[in-house]
């Protein structure tokens, strides 16, 4: 058996474990929605809190409140970490180790960095997404995004390994450059942060809706959301994550331009891939501005982050596969 075959096996194992982790995360979410009813009725402050949160929601556009950045948060603290959540995280770590081995082995098999075609981009990109998720979790508790992250990674890996698998081939001359290593790696890392930011923004929107409805929300999703941080805190978290993504993306764009200058003799030529990288950059610049604009802070800004990440995914899938351009990827 050669390295590439072992890599493939490791990757499939990683996918299986991610799937398990996904299930446990999902169980945790389900638990949250049933647990909350109990907690809420048991605690007379809960209603107060919800009312307070609602008031805060209304005024977020006027007041720049930093206290909500406190690491303890009423909602999350009340629920704590269920066993299924802990198992979900542990499984994610195991899957990540398998995933990492798959990636490294693929690199060894190819004798170069494992990101030179769609299959490898997907494998490395998703690895980076999970890595970012796990590392950020050390500082900020984002475990509740586990379902989203493992789900996203599973879909991407599934698509890639079924549709895009290619045997190891040498790098064509056009890709033989140090900038391949830098540009693609930074882009993947940026994507990892944008993915987390996306998850947080979606959560923020759900939370804002729950907060705008009177306390005592009834639907499962709303009860589940009650265990998560407030919309305002989610927004602040999303912003912190997204600006890191934005800086990485800015660098991606510049590194791409430097590479294009070396390879094609011009740093910018509005090639389709360049166009989409630019569009994504502008959308996130819009997001940052929206957060600083009265009347746009809050849900509208969150929508821009969501559109931004959708554009990232569009760029990675549809643009790579169906749009014509200079960025031809080997193996497709």
């Amino acid at each position: 058996m050669n390295f590439d075959e072992i890599s493939v096996i490791a990757l499939y194992s990683a996918m299986a474990v991610y799937a398990l982790a996904f299930i446990f995360y999902a169980v945790d979410l389900a638990r949250r929605s049933s647990a909350v009813g109990v907690v809420e009725s048991a605690s007379p402050v809960a209603a107060d809190r919800a009312a307070g949160a609602q008031a805060a929601g209304v005024t977020t556009t006027l007041v720049r409140d930093t206290t909500t950045l406190d690491t303890t948060d009423a909602g999350a603290a009340r629920y704590g970490r269920s066993p299924s959540l802990r198992i979900g995280v542990a499984l994610t770590v195991i899957a990540w180790v398998l995933h990492l081995s798959a990636d490294v082995l693929r690199g060894v098999a190819a004798g170069r960095v494992p990101w030179a075609n769609m299959y490898e981009f997907a494998m490395t990109g998703t690895l980076v997404i999970v890595t970012v998720y796990l590392i950020v979790n050390i500082k900020i508790d984002l475990r509740f995004l586990g379902t989203f992250i493992t789900g996203l990674v599973l879909i991407l890996l599934g698509l890639a390994s079924v549709n895009f698998y290619v045997a190891v081939t040498p790098l064509p001359p056009a890709l033989q450059s140090i900038w391949l290593i830098i540009h693609v790696f930074v882009a993947s890392t940026g994507t990892g942060f944008f993915a987390l930011g996306f998850g947080l923004s979606v959560a923020q929107l759900l939370q804002a809706r729950r907060e705008s409805i009177a306390a005592g929300a009834t639907s499962a999703v709303q009860r589940l959301m009650a265990t998560l941080p407030s919309a305002e805190r989610l927004e602040a978290l999303a912003y912190r994550i997204n600006i890191i993504g934005f800086i990485l993306w800015t660098f991606t764009l510049m590194a791409g331009a430097i590479w294009a200058e070396k390879a094609w003799g011009r740093y910018w030529g509005w090639d389709t891939k360049e166009v989409w990288t630019f569009i994504i950059w502008v959308i996130y610049a819009g997001y940052i501005h929206a957060r600083a604009t009265r009347g746009w802070r809050g849900s509208r800004a969150a929508w821009l982050a969501i559109i931004g990440f959708s554009a990232v995914m569009f760029n990675f899938t549809i643009v790579n596969l169906f749009f014509k351009g200079l960025h031809a990827y080997s193996g497709l």
């Binding site: 819009g286 929206a290 600083a292």
Partner: peptide, 22 residues
Amino acid sequence: MRTALFLLLLLAIAAVPGSLVP
């Protein structure tokens, strides 16, 4: 700020057709 934001988003949208048509 509102105009800056509007123009930024408009710029993003306006850049799209160039990737659809050669």
